[in-house]
């Protein structure tokens, strides 16, 4: 089961756990991690909703294009569901 997802490109100010270098990039879900409190609320001392968290795997080619050191190497990151668009 390889589910392809794209990381949203939005750039709101403030604390998010989605790295800028992965915005707009397409990866596959490596595993589902379950629900975790939304850090975007926790960071401001607000009551936090549970949001699903995923480990998403990206190829270096997808992330860095022609600048990739070795295109087939990968980078995995944990991304919350509300940052992902299913493809």
């Amino acid at each position: 089961m390889t589910e392809r997802v794209r990381v949203k490109t939005m750039m709101p100010p403030g604390h998010v756990r989605t790295p800028a270098y992965l915005r707009g990039k397409v990866g596959v879900i490596e595993r589902e991690l379950g629900g975790f409190s939304n850090p975007e609320q926790l960071a401001y001392g607000l009551p936090a909703e549970e949001r699903p968290l995923y480990r998403v795997r990206f190829t270096m080619e997808e992330v860095w294009g022609a600048a990739a050191e070795t295109p087939t190497d990968t980078v995995d990151a944990e991304i919350f569901g509300h940052w992902l668009e299913r493809l």
Binding site: Y21, D73, V75
Partner: peptide, 29 residues
């Protein structure tokens, strides 16, 4: 996350081309 093999070389680890590098960015929990 962008040049893991170059970083590894600085640490004295030289990987052959057939070894895939998987970087894990601890972004959340």
């Amino acid at each position: 996350v962008i040049e893991p093999r170059a970083v590894l070389r600085e640490f004295g680890v030289e990987l052959p081309d057939h070894v895939q590098v998987r970087v894990h960015d601890s972004t959340a929990d």
